[in-house]
Design a protein around this nucleic acid. Structure first.
Lengths: 201, 201
DNA sequence: GGTTTCTGAGACGATTTGACTCACAACACG
DNA sequence: CGTGTTGTGAGTCAAATCGTCTCAGAAACC
């Protein structure tokens, strides 16, 4: 990187230059659009610059490498995970959470993001970190719901966050990734019931 | 494709030219190596040619596009799925099959292959077909084992191949893909027991 | 041993990649 | 509201890559 490290300091006095904000927004938006329509190999400086109506040089100023760009795009297009209100009924709450999960899988392009991140994760620590954070975020809701029943002894006390995730998110994700088909309400209920039957004490 | 379609007909009188075989073997081997070490974006004509010690022109002769190349690499590095001898004990047989599955996941770079295939599948019908065949192959063993008990009424008669796969391979694959950690014997047993508990009649 | 045919080296134009410059417009700040 | 600062776009540049093609030589086939 011969060019000066941070000439446009992004924020001065805690204030972001309007132009910078505009550029970033346009680019990240265009990047996400390309990622979802053409796959992650379409996310290059050139393509995104064209798509965003932004100069190519500007791209390189903000994101020196493709990894910088892709990492930002991935972070940006992660929709916030709205936590559902727990009713106290474990079965109902699990179904609700998995419903949200499936919604995210279907509406947003989470599978594409997951795959893109997984592909790059081995080589890029930033994306690896993002992948881990995504994993954590996705399993947090079901773990939160399951935690109390475990402590109360209604569920197998051996259960860990990883195991709960594997047996609730796992089957759902498998169906979405490999069968491609829509994950239906009854798929969710079957998964939850199987989990409860197997791990209820 | 201006160059004549098949000048080296690959086989003459059902016999493959030794040189062709050598080249193909070297290239597919190098391609797999690159795929597993640097990810699938490293599988380009140039890189593979260097890695395999083969002329670049030769690459283009055999595999005009990157998709041709990658598809062949993927097909080639799929190890044959040796079917285990069923004992008749459902639990034992399922554990055995999942053991084989986990072995394939750990030894071969199946996850990398899966991810690579998934990434390209939407754009390339050949890779999509390969992805589907891979899916079919992977779930065939567990389905075979589960089928008889279902017919005998020992397992939920509603069970389909997709559902069985989702609830056996799903959790295992999730752990491998997202936790990255080694899938242990007890993980397999837990998965099988959960499945049996949930779906035994 | 003669013929076929596969290979490697290299050349080629076209395209892509990063890096850089510079004039200009838009912002921030007094 | 004017002035100085700073991000931006257009465009240039060398280097690398892509896909194609030619050609001589080596090696396989018969």
């Amino acid at each position: 990187m011969t060019q000066q490290d941070v000439q446009w300091s992004t924020e001065i006095n805690n204030r972001v230059d309007v132009r910078v904000a505009r550029t970033r927004a346009a680019v990240l938006d265009a990047g996400a659009r390309l990622l979802f329509t053409e796959g992650w190999h379409a996310v290059t400086h050139l393509r995104v610059a064209e798509e965003a109506g932004v100069g190519r040089a500007t791209m390189y100023r903000h994101w020196p490498t493709v990894e910088d760009l892709l990492a930002d795009v991935l972070v940006d297009c992660q929709e916030p995970w709205e936590a559902a209100e727990p009713t106290g009924d474990l079965r109902v709450d699990l179904i609700t959470e998995l419903d949200v999960f499936v919604g995210a899988l279907q509406l947003s392009k989470l599978p594409e993001i997951i795959v893109a991140a997984m592909e790059r994760a081995p080589t890029d620590p930033r994306i690896q970190a993002m992948h881990e954070s995504m994993t954590r975020i996705s399993r947090h809701p079901v773990w939160t719901v399951a935690q109390a029943p475990i402590e109360r002894g209604e569920l197998d006390p051996e259960l860990t966050e990883e195991i709960v995730a594997a047996h609730t998110l796992g089957p759902i994700l498998y169906q979405r990734l490999f069968d491609g088909q829509h994950v239906t309400r009854s798929d969710i209920e079957r998964t939850v019931d199987a989990f409860l039957t197997a791990f209820a004490t």
